[in-house]
Write a protein that binds this DNA or RNA. Sequence first.
DNA 1: CCTTGAACCTGCGGGC
DNA 2: TGCCCGCAGGTTCAAG
Length: 279
Amino acid sequence: MPELPEVETVCRGLDPVMRGQKILRAEIRRKDLRKPFPPRLKSALEGATIQHVSRRAKYILITLDTGKILVMHLGMSGRVQIEGEGYTPKTHDHFMLHLKNKRVIVLNDARRFGIVLLVDAATMDDHPVFVALGPEPLSNDFSGPYLVERLRGKKVAIKTALMDPRVVVGVGNIYASESLFLAGISPEREAGSISGDRAEKLVQAIRKVLKKAIEKGGSTLKDHRQASGELGYFQHHFTVYDKVGEACPGCSCDIVKTGGIRRIVQGGRSSFYCAEKQK
DNA sequence: CCTTGAACCTGCGGGC
DNA sequence: TGCCCGCAGGTTCAAG
């Protein structure tokens, strides 16, 4: 489920609720997700005060006053809910934090591809999950020239390269397809063959698509906070993702001739594109 | 180093 | 109705 915009939205929803709060109790309801919960996690959390909630790549960072950062990743199916006192855990509620303000933060993850880590704030960047990460797509470090340099000589398809977090973080399967459509680039094009101009266009497309989704998440957040407190699953409108056979939007190409939006499999993942518009 | 493919796990929807 | 299949927003590891 969560790509960068969804994780960003979750963080924005969590920060005002968690900031400055003491963790009274941490509940770990099974031994592992994708990996075991860290040893002594419970004692490291209980009594600690949360300074703020932020994001790196698709990781949620909950910075504590103890020099540690509680890191959560939502995997494919993870969600975070903000509940109240007396909340009864449901199926797949694996990890819960009871805060001083009576709120209960619940991590639910059916498939358990998510992860919970505890890292030292001072050396976070050296931790195995962070050490090789590429730039944030919305930062100035992510640019046309950077992308050209980073993709030089790469023979993998550009779609696959965009989803490689060593190239750029946060671009998952949905937004990779959406960005390539907006940039007019075929997902099958060899990554190293993207010219300077098209790399610049692609960078701008990725930024635009992600920013728009974050804006949408922001408005969805308001509605959801009022309704249920659920953070993490949003109804976005996509242009090509999961639109097989539909007419290419905003494009005059003949759907009878082109068959509309096509689906192919790359690296075991579905890609969606318009063969007429994307070259 | 690169690239590919499988693995992790549960749930859902479609076809029969 | 049930069963089997393919598919799902991510990451990591092994093998070539």
